[in-house]
């Protein structure tokens, strides 16, 4: 394409898509609870010393805004598909709703599966585990899987790095294991 990398973030409502984008671009956690309908940001990044332009699109999780969201799919290179570890419903909807929707509208699209709010594992029991996430990644044939936390600014950059890698190396699927939370800082 025209040298622009387009990344669209999708996933259920209240999984922290907007927060993740904020954490990535502003490097801080924003604790506001407002719903998004459609939002885009432009950023410039350097890849191999060359400046590239990246457009991040934030979408609505609610099915009311299906139409607008689908409009954004057309021009997208990589999807970041989110679920939050504390909400099993959002995890199940990845399989039942989101993966299907993406495949239907854009077959062979590149997907990075992102598990958000990983800091909540310590607070709640019964969160979605890492192995479940990996299994889901295989099932929906996502290119990669990352667990991240916007609150701790943990692994958020890696989500987008992997998305960029998937976008510029279409045939190169990284096989290395994602960085696990246990070995991060704490």
């Amino acid at each position: 394409m025209d040298g622009i990398i387009r990344i669209t973030v999708v996933g259920d409502g209240n999984t922290g898509k907007t927060c993740m984008l904020y954490a990535y671009k502003d490097k801080k956690y924003n604790d506001h609870h407002s719903s998004t309908v459609f939002d885009s940001y432009s950023m410039s990044i350097e890849i191999d010393g060359k400046p590239r332009r990246m457009i991040l699109t934030d979408t609505a999780g609610q099915e009311e805004y299906d139409r607008i969201r689908i409009l954004a799919y057309k021009e997208c290179d990589v999807f970041v598909l989110c679920y939050s570890v504390d909400c099993r419903i959002s995890f199940l909807n990845v399989r039942n709703k989101w993966a299907r929707e993406l495949m239907k509208i854009k077959p062979n699209c590149r997907i990075i599966l992102a598990a958000t709010k990983s800091d909540l594992r310590k607070i709640y029991n019964g969160c979605v585990s890492t192995s479940e996430g990996l299994r889901l990644k295989k099932e929906i044939r996502a290119n990669d899987f990352v667990e991240c936390s916007s609150k701790l600014l943990l692994n958020v950059d890696i989500v987008f790095q992997k998305a960029v890698i998937a976008a510029i190396h279409p045939h190169f699927v990284k096989k290395t294991k994602p960085k696990k939370e246990e070995c991060a800082i704490l």
Binding site: H33, Q62, L92
Partner: peptide
């Protein structure tokens, strides 16, 4: 929490 905003499980 998040009434109206959070989606139900599709199935």
């Amino acid at each position: 929490d998040g009434i109206l905003r959070i989606a139900g499980q599709k199935h």
